[in-house]
Nucleic acid binder design. Structure first.
Lengths: 103, 103
DNA sequence: ATCCTATGCATAGGATTCCGAGGTAACCAA
DNA sequence: TTGGTTACCTCGGAATCCTATGCATAGGAT
C-alpha cells in the first residue's frame, strides 16, 4: 500500500539523512514505515531519475564495497524543495484528517 | 492542491453526513478543508460514477428545489468501505508523518 | 429585457504516478 | 554450481487528476 505523490518527498528526506543508492532508499522507506510504505523498484528508479533531471539530487559513482553503485546526494535546491514539501504535507494531511475525524 | 487517492473516501464521508448531489459534495470538501482541498468537477463526477458502479453509493432524482438534480446516498457496502478507508488513511498518514518528522 | 454569475452535470485529452513483469549482472553461501 | 540477495533499468498498462470545453437553468444586477 502506498501514498501517491509522497515518493519524491520521501526520497529527499532519505538523502538528507545520508547520501546513498536507489535500492537502499527503497529499503529505508520500508523499514522506517515498518512495512506500511513499500515503493517498488519500477516506481523508485524513474522517480529518482526525475529528481536528478530537476536538479534536486546529484548522482555519483561509488566503489566503496568493491562493486560499482550509483549513489545520490541531495542538492541545495533539493533541500529547499523538501522544506516546501514538508509544509505541504502537513497542511494536506491535517485537512484530510480533520474531515475524516480523529484529528 | 490535492491528495491523490483520497477523493473516493472524502466523497463517502460527505454522504454519510448527508445524502446530496455532486456539486455540493465538491463544495463541502473545499469548505471543510478551508480551501486546502479543491477537487475539480472533471475529477469529481467520474469518481462519483465509479463509486456508483461499484455499488458504494446509490443515486436518485431530486426535485426539492424545483430543479432536477442527481443526488447520492451511501450504501451499506459504502459504509464498510469507508471504515476500511479511514483505517488505511490513519496507517498511511502516520507512516509518512513519522518519517517526515513532526509526528 | 438582458447579461452575468453561480449552479449543475458531463466528457475528452493529456499529464503524472504507480505497479507488475521482465531483463541484466554481481556477489555470496550452501 | 545453484540459488538468494543485492543492484540497476525499462516497458506497458492502470488509475487518478487537471484543464478545457460543452450544455443548461436559476437568480441577481444593470
Amino acid at each position: 500500500m502506498n501514498f501517491k505523490g509522497t515518493l519524491p518527498t520521501l526520497i529527499l528526506e532519505a538523502l538528507v539523512r545520508e547520501p546513498t543508492h536507489g535500492y537502499r532508499i527503497a529499503q529505508s522507506i520500508k523499514e522506517r514505515s515498518e512495512g506500511v510504505l513499500d515503493f517498488k523498484e519500477g516506481t523508485l528508479y524513474p522517480a529518482l531519475h526525475k529528481l536528478e533531471n530537476e536538479g534536486l539530487v546529484e548522482s555519483y559513482e561509488s566503489n566503496e564495497t568493491g562493486r560499482a553503485r550509483r549513489c545520490y546526494r541531495i542538492t541545495k535546491t533539493g533541500r529547499a524543495t523538501l522544506a516546501r514539501d514538508r509544509a505541504e504535507w502537513r497542511q494536506l494531511s491535517r485537512a484530510v484528517t480533520v474531515i475524516l475525524g480523529e484529528a
